Simulated scan of single mutants.
Amino acid sequence: MEFRIDEVKRQVILVQGAPRNSEITLNELDVLNRKFLEGTQDKYECELVLQDVEVTDETGEKTGVTELKAFARRKGAENWLMEFIPEEYIW
Score class of each variant (00 low, 15 high):
residue 16 Q to Y: 14
residue 90 I to W: 03
residue 74 R to F: 10
residue 71 F to E: 06
residue 4 R to W: 01
residue 89 Y to S: 01
residue 4 R to F: 08
residue 30 D to W: 07
residue 69 K to H: 03
residue 87 E to L: 02
residue 17 G to A: 14
residue 4 R to M: 11
residue 13 I to R: 12
residue 54 E to L: 02
residue 45 E to S: 12
residue 41 Q to T: 15
residue 48 L to W: 01
residue 29 L to G: 00
residue 73 R to F: 09
residue 46 C to N: 05
residue 71 F to W: 11
residue 51 Q to C: 04
residue 57 D to P: 02
residue 22 S to E: 14
residue 69 K to Q: 12
residue 2 E to K: 15
residue 75 K to I: 15
residue 65 V to K: 11
residue 27 N to E: 08
residue 12 V to S: 08
residue 55 V to D: 03
residue 66 T to V: 13
residue 88 E to C: 05
residue 79 N to I: 04
residue 82 M to D: 06
residue 43 K to R: 14
residue 1 M to S: 13
residue 46 C to W: 06
residue 16 Q to C: 01
residue 38 E to V: 13
residue 47 E to S: 01
residue 78 E to Y: 03
residue 11 Q to H: 04
residue 62 K to S: 14
residue 81 L to Q: 01
residue 73 R to D: 03
residue 42 D to S: 13
residue 22 S to K: 13
residue 49 V to K: 05
residue 52 D to P: 01
residue 29 L to F: 11
residue 49 V to Q: 01
residue 88 E to S: 07
residue 87 E to F: 02
residue 67 E to D: 06
residue 91 W to I: 04
residue 45 E to I: 05
residue 20 R to E: 15
residue 70 A to N: 05
residue 69 K to E: 06
residue 67 E to K: 12
residue 46 C to E: 14
residue 45 E to W: 02
residue 21 N to V: 07
residue 31 V to H: 09
residue 60 G to S: 07
residue 51 Q to E: 12
residue 26 L to H: 06
residue 1 M to D: 13
residue 7 E to H: 08
residue 62 K to T: 08
residue 86 P to W: 04
residue 11 Q to A: 03
residue 45 E to M: 11
residue 78 E to K: 13
residue 77 A to N: 11
residue 9 K to T: 02
residue 49 V to T: 06
residue 26 L to E: 08
residue 10 R to D: 10
residue 42 D to Q: 12
residue 61 E to L: 12
residue 74 R to S: 09
residue 19 P to Y: 11
residue 41 Q to I: 15
residue 43 K to W: 02
residue 16 Q to V: 05
residue 40 T to V: 08
residue 18 A to T: 15
residue 32 L to I: 07
residue 41 Q to E: 14
residue 74 R to W: 07
residue 76 G to E: 05
residue 76 G to R: 00
residue 91 W to Y: 12
residue 77 A to Q: 13
residue 29 L to Q: 09
residue 20 R to K: 14
residue 9 K to I: 00
residue 47 E to W: 00
residue 44 Y to I: 00
residue 8 V to G: 06
residue 14 L to S: 06
residue 18 A to N: 12
residue 69 K to I: 06
residue 39 G to F: 09
residue 20 R to A: 15
residue 36 F to N: 05
residue 89 Y to W: 05
residue 46 C to R: 02
residue 60 G to K: 06
residue 33 N to Q: 15
residue 49 V to G: 02
residue 83 E to F: 00
